[in-house]
Design a binder for these strands. Structure first.
Lengths: 339, 339
DNA sequence: TATTTTCAAACAAACGTTTGCGCACATTTT
DNA sequence: AAAATGTGCGCAAACGTTTGTTTGAAAATA
């Protein structure tokens, strides 16, 4: 029965017309008479004709596939972001080729290669924590395949990216705590190598200054984001001559580690604010009093939209300066309603 | 500079030999002299030649892409499973086209269509909760494109699938509680429509019988898995004439809801055992004392392996009865080390 | 020397589709 | 009546690669 899919050729043969006529008829080309057009379309549906995408992709040199490389789908941020990416992709007739780097720079490099051999039309990347060189992305620039980075942005120039406004998010978080009466606010920041850590620090400082308070750098500590690392810096915090009454943490996990540690010391009364707003905090018994939502879905959506725009932009005339998309998605402080 | 990728033709022209010779030289065909082979390979690497996958895929009618449709990546089970799928796929030179149904049957149907037009070589599916018809998968059978189901298996015949042994998992869980001295064990089961609920029940019964205990059906209650639903059935449990001293729950979320509820009633001392072994329980303050691990990574891996085997199986001679892979991945009771 | 075998490389078809060009016919404009 | 314009369709090339068949020459056999 349905052995091989129907081709345009077969339709042509049955109707005793040329392949080109069939092709044009199906694509509503202007130079085809109404009658033949109808005949072709009728038979096409009867035979369940579906254009062979591979042939078209090959012919046009377009795959209609976008590659997505991200660190970890088990991180809620990314699994939500991918939904946004997917939705845009499907709406705009692209499909998503997925790969996780598992925060391994070597694997990431390999995956970028794979994406290249698969000839994706564009690439969406959130770089791994351990990535320190970026030449593998340069290849894409040479091949004129657009790359858009999101959330985890490499510190290089001339790239497209979408990221959340961490500075502003932190500003609001600190401001919220200040309004609540706190005067000694600690911050458990991430590794200093991350751009994100820097931005958070700036937000912190901005909030202090705009409230006419003095900024005390010793209240900001760097942390490797592990549980042991968090405990270590928490101890530093708690032994600080100005013991913080509130702490802003790099993410929800750090917040949980820190909170667990303080409780194990039977210390109460420190307010925590964190990032990411993970769904799991709904299941927690003790939660941060607020969390900065980064809207991963929106971020993924935006990034995918930009990428597909770039793919379909008119051929960049040589000489024309290329513009880079640097989109910042605003974040929002979500105040927990759980007491 | 590097405008268009190098083709086999260009190499042929430069070396003044035919395209076919170049092709065969690159593919180590036996009938090519060593000298020409070397010359070709040398030039190929110099020019950064990479075969145009689209052309090859088109020519061979193979895409080397497997489609994966699953309900929700934000569910830890699936985000872990996809890692297993991915790893196998990449190792065996396939790429993964991903799509989430978000547990919406209509969307799932649409995605299956998309996968068809993209001409994937095979399909990996975990069906949505709301899917009740299955014709959209039949099309693939007609097109001779293999489909492998995993975890969420549709109740139809003649399919390939990979699933975990829930019956056995429950058996072990109940057995564990019995060995611990419990004699009145409740079970919060899922909706009766799910195959999974049925299997859990069987496991429960089997454990009771093999311990020469009487099975009391009223100790098993069905639940819609929501928080309110869980609280409701928990109340039923707690008011039962034989109040359970231990409870087996359908999954970790239900366990959390139930535990929170009992604690809010200031009831202590009920042992909980649940499924899934979510990473989040590491962050919880009160956790189930054990959880049935379903090895999603392994399950994903297995499913992908089977699928790719099916894709590459020798042409099924018409007449030969097709065998169906029904693989059951054993589950394992993980006993929590958190006191 | 005449014939067969082997090796190395070329030729050409094929995959399914799009598209520039051209041809034949019909209709309208000079 | 001739020329220009328009309409509807076919021809053939092109995309990059693989692969069955063929060719040509050198080497081995008779």
């Amino acid at each position: 029965m349905s052995d091989k899919p129907t081709t345009i050729k077969e339709i042509a043969k049955i109707l005793k017309i040329s392949v080109s006529t069939v092709s044009r008829a199906l694509n509503d080309h202007s130079s085809i008479g109404l009658t033949t057009k109808m005949r072709v379309k009728k038979l096409a549906t009867e035979l369940n004709y579906e254009p062979n995408q591979k042939a078209i992709q090959f012919l046009q040199g377009k795959s209609h596939i976008i590659g997505v490389i991200l660190p970890e789908l088990s991180e809620s941020f990314f699994s939500t972001a991918i939904s946004g990416i997917e939705d845009v992709a499907y709406k705009r007739n692209y499909t998503v080729l997925l790969a996780q780097s598992h925060d391994d720079a070597d694997r990431e490099k390999l995956l970028v290669e794979k994406m290249k051999t698969q000839r994706v039309d564009g690439l969406l990347v959130s770089v791994s924590k351990t990535t320190s060189t970026y030449e593998h992305f340069e290849i894409f620039k040479k091949l004129n395949i657009p790359v858009v980075f999101f959330d985890r942005i490499p510190p290089i120039k001339d790239i497209h990216y979408v990221a959340s406004n961490l500075e502003n998010g932190t500003y609001e978080a600190v401001n919220f705590l200040l309004k609540k009466g706190h005067r000694t606010i600690g911050m458990i920041n991430g590794p200093t190598t991350l751009v994100a850590s820097h931005e958070r620090k700036e937000g912190y400082i901005k909030a202090m200054i705009s409230n006419r308070l003095k900024f005390d750098p010793s209240l900001i500590v760097s942390c490797d984001l592990s549980e042991s690392g968090t405990i270590e810096v928490m101890n530093t915090m708690l032994n600080h001559r100005r013991k913080p009454t509130a702490i802003v943490t790099f993410n929800d996990y750090v917040a949980l580690f820190a909170m667990r540690h303080t409780r194990s010391l039977e210390l109460e009364g420190i307010d925590f604010v964190s990032y990411a707003n993970l769904p799991i905090i709904n299941y927690m018994d003790y939660t941060p009093i607020a969390s900065v939502e980064q809207f991963p879905y929106k971020q993924g959506k935006k990034a995918a939209d930009i990428l597909i725009d770039l793919i379909n932009r008119p051929k960049n005339e040589t000489g024309t300066e290329q513009a880079y998309f640097n989109v910042v998605v605003e974040s929002e402080l979500i105040i927990s309603n759980i007491k």
